[in-house]
Design a protein around this nucleic acid. Structure first.
Lengths: 178, 178
DNA sequence: AAGAAGTTTCAGAACTATCTGAAAACATAG
DNA sequence: CTATGTTTTCAGATAGTTCTGAAACTTCTT
């Protein structure tokens, strides 16, 4: 069976899905996530059933190694989980579909990867210039301090939001927006 | 004068600054921003005076072309501005130092670059599957809708926060955290 | 108008990230 | 223990991004 025939057998929504997967991948690479990883995530997010490695390889035209690496990476992020069906040796994968949970997971992970190391740098730089009491040295120290406090503050907000249930977050946000 | 001599003449805080610039650059490349751009930004953010292209090239050991490209890019982000000193032809650059303003600028720009195109994709996919009324097609449509609403919601929150003055944002956040 | 001082552009070089494919490791069943 | 189906690893290939350096361009001065 050739591509065109397969295409014609595929229900309508699958076309939209294909589009979603492709575009999501392109977007991913705009924001520091690698294209394939984003595509796999999009694919699983819209899968009615858990999928195995072979299926993913086939749908995305990628190699086994690539699929495997990115699946592990996604598991590392906590965005998908491994499913073992009884009586089957093969591993299946399934994505978290709840949007709020997904958001929390991504927020936590980004905090860990982006904010934590930044904070470390800022603290060190602030510390090393403790003794400066005037002039540009003082100005530098103050700036590092300000940045540090801002980042710490952002982290607190992020933690608070992340610990909320969807409903209370919504309520809180409504208050903000009104 | 050799490197070591220059080094010894540099006041203490400059060492911390050097560290900050280097580390900030490394961080930048972790989150989708290119290394040089992040370094230039860090350098200008901690500069007591506006700097010109030559100075930046010398401090970071980069070529004129590279410096120029990334300076324009930073101007595009709205993170630095061009300063023309009277009676001088040379262009100087200065970074916004207020942390809150910097945050707003980055947030707006990221919204424009990350959220806007994502929303477009989601809307299209939701639209194309309007007619699905059951089964996996419906599930797909619903998921797109949920994502769309979530992103729109996030954008509203981001707009609201971005329009706040530092003081009122702080007040608002205090309420959240307590 | 010619020269000086500066900025911008861009083709190719250097570097980095990602992907492939085949081999090795692992797990299960017989 | 061996055969078989599956996952993991990793060296090298490929693709993508960033950087250089020199030439072209612009602007100002005399």
């Amino acid at each position: 069976m050739n591509e065109a025939q397969i295409q014609s057998l595929r229900p309508d929504w699958e076309l939209a899905r294909e589009e979603f997967v492709a575009q999501w991948g392109a977007l991913g690479s705009h924001w520091g996530i690698n294209r394939t990883m984003a595509q796999i995530h999009a694919l699983l997010m819209t899968a009615p059933e858990p999928m195995d490695t072979e299926q993913i390889m086939a749908r995305l035209h990628i190699s086994r190694g690539n699929a495997n690496t990115n699946l592990r990476e996604l598991i590392g992020w906590g965005l998908i989980r491994l499913i073992v069906k009884k009586g089957e040796r093969r591993e299946y994968f399934e994505a978290e579909k709840d949007v709020w949970k997904m958001f929390i997971t991504i927020a936590k992970e980004r905090k860990r990867r982006e904010l934590d190391p930044a904070l470390l740098v800022l603290k060190q730089c602030a510390e090393q210039t403790q003794t400066e009491t005037a002039g540009p040295g003082k100005a530098f120290h103050d700036q590092m301090k300000e940045l540090q406090e801002f980042v710490e503050f952002g982290m607190k907000v992020s933690d608070t939001v992340a610990s909320m249930k969807h409903a209370s977050a919504l309520q809180w946000a409504m208050r903000l927006l009104s």
